[in-house]
Write a protein that binds this DNA or RNA. Structure first.
Length: 484
RNA sequence: GCCCCGAUGGUGUAGUGGCCUAUCAUGCAGCCCUGUCGAGGCUGCGACCCGGGUUCAAAUCCCGGUCGGGGCGCCA
């Protein structure tokens, strides 16, 4: 039923960008979206448009060319009588996805035949071509069909991402990615955070815990940064107060799952005079803002994703701003929930994916898991003496944000007492003298502070219903893929 | 690193020892058509991952390799 709707209406239109204010360029007087939107008022005017040839329907002495640019689709009507013979023939025989420029007058399109009794669709407009040019010919066959209704495997799609991106729902997902970053920035700026950029090339002896990619930096050894953690803290210690960064992080882990990549974009914040509860608040307000803005402004993009999902027999995704505050399920309580749900776990164990499944039955949406054991958190996480778990172990002020079974965020209050910091380093087998670039930042008065890092692709998975982070990363880097 | 599964035209698939000079869809190429719009009609094109082995006979069974998928582990 839904599939029929998808097919009858043709490919999604909701992913087309609003180009109301776009200026003319060297290759066009109007975007296709402008012609479609202006409609009636442009009838009789000459326009030059350019786009991809989505379909070319030849009909002897006439020809229908469906052109698509990033802002819309429109039909160009070509008549042999109205233009140069050779040009007509070359356009009529051009291949799908070739880029073509068309000049002609806007006209009202003849209404399509509809089944008896069905209402006529609203009037549409077309361009009666008088001149044109093939800008670049597409080779055939396409390795990934742009409008074909056949499934394509993810690997083939990623090998041909440049074509995959032309597909409506894929294009929509990357526009949504841009919107998520935009609204996230917008919100943080409104709360006084400033954007920073930390170095991605770092010296040896980083945080430990994860494997780093080594590289040669002139004559010395260096590594690709696993996280902006230490640097965003230094920025806060230095007086920038509230900072955020959206940047790449690299981890040389040989994982191979739907949610891990070896290069990923992390959305990080750090704020002075804040504790874990404060930054959880920032996070839930930011996510709520993103979801609100998407549902206000960008449902056309979600529709494009859903039209595809429907054609694949999948449930549509919905965008409803989650209620605030998000549930807080302290680590100790989470352990109890897992035990009650029949999971094998004891205090001090990591909460693994299959444990998260049990918790997600009770808390299917966003939820925080604060107060992890200190022994499970990195050395820079703050703890308060006397805050102990059910078996007496020291608790930390570190937290995770999960959605269902998936971890979105890791964060916490940071240790600002330099002597505790140095002891923490020794406790995890690191040498404080390797971290003076970092610990020195705490020697001259350090504000208590807190922050978090959010996996952008994981958040996008939630928003778009993508089952794999690779769907929402342009050119993903995993264990076996470094190209394209 | 472990366990399981898979690889058939450009793409997605059917096929479980002979019925396969291999199914279907989509695509591509050509022809017909002066208003198509999921265009239509007709005619073509194009594939069993690689290397060994078993068998009278292998897309199909076995071994090795390569590539891919799923699950797990590892993972601020």
């Amino acid at each position: 039923m839904l599939t029929e709707t998808f097919q009858r209406d043709g490919p999604a239109r909701g992913f087309m960008r609003d180009s109301t204010n776009w200026e003319p360029t060297a290759y066009r007087t109007h975007t296709i979206g402008q012609v479609v939107a202006a409609g009636e008022s442009l009838v009789g005017s000459e326009v030059t448009i350019a786009g991809y040839a989505e379909t070319v329907r030849g009909r002897g002495a006439i020809c229908f060319l469906m052109l698509r640019d990033g802002t819309g689709r429109i039909q160009a009507f070509l008549k042999k009588d109205n233009m140069d013979d050779d040009l007509f023939d070359s356009i009529q025989s051009s291949t799908r996805e070739s880029t073509i420029q068309i000049t002609g007058k806007v006209a009202k399109k003849r209404p399509p035949k509809v089944p008896e009794g069905d209402p006529l669709p609203p009037p549409e407009f077309e361009v009666n071509a008088e001149d044109g040019m093939i800008l670049a010919v597409s080779e055939t066959p396409l390795p990934v069909g742009v409008t074909d209704e056949v499934n394509v495997g993810l690997d083939v799609r990623l090998d041909n991402r440049h074509l995959d991106l032309r597909r409506a729902h894929v294009n929509a997902m990357f526009q949504l990615r841009s919107k998520v970053l935009q609204y996230g920035r917008e919100h943080l700026i409104s709360e006084g955070f400033q954007e920073i950029n930390s170095p991605k090339i770092i010296a040896a002896a980083a945080e430990g815990g994860t494997n780093l990619f080594p590289m040669k930096y002139f004559e010395t050894d260096a590594y690709l940064s696993q996280s902006p953690q230490l640097y965003k803290q230094l920025a806060v210690l230095g007086g920038l107060e509230r900072v955020f960064e959206i940047g790449a992080a690299f981890r040389a882990e040989k994982h191979d799952t739907y949610r891990h990549l070896n290069e990923f974009v992390s959305f990080d914040i750090e704020g002075a005079w804040m504790d874990d509860e404060d930054v959880m608040g920032v996070q839930e307000r930011m996510i709520s803002h993103i979801w609100c803005k998407i549902s206000e402004n960008d449902m056309g993009l979600i529709d494009a994703v859903n039209e595809y999902r429907e054609s694949q027999g999948k449930d549509p995704v919905t965008v409803e701003a989650p209620a605030l505050p998000f549930p807080r399920i302290p680590y100790c309580e989470a352990i109890d929930i897992v035990k009650q749900g029949g999971g094998e776990i004891s205090w001090g164990d990591d909460i693994e994916s299959h444990h998260c499944d049990i918790i997600a039955e009770k808390y299917p949406g966003f939820h925080f898991i604060p107060r992890w054991p200190m022994s499970m958190k990195p050395f820079y996480i703050h703890h308060k003496e006397g805050e102990e778990g059910s078996t007496g172990g020291q608790l930390s002020r570190g937290f995770d944000l999960n959605y269902g079974r998936d971890e979105m965020t890791s964060g916490g209050a940071r240790e600002h007492r330099v002597e505790v910091l140095e002891q923490n380093l020794r406790d995890v087998g690191l040498d404080p003298s390797d971290f003076t670039f970092y610990t020195d930042g705490f020697r001259y008065g350090a504000p208590p502070h807190a922050g978090w890092g959010l996996g952008v692709a994981r958040l996008l998975m939630v928003l778009t219903g993508a089952g794999n982070v690779r769907e929402v990363v342009l050119f993903p880097r995993d264990r076996s893929r470094v190209t394209p």
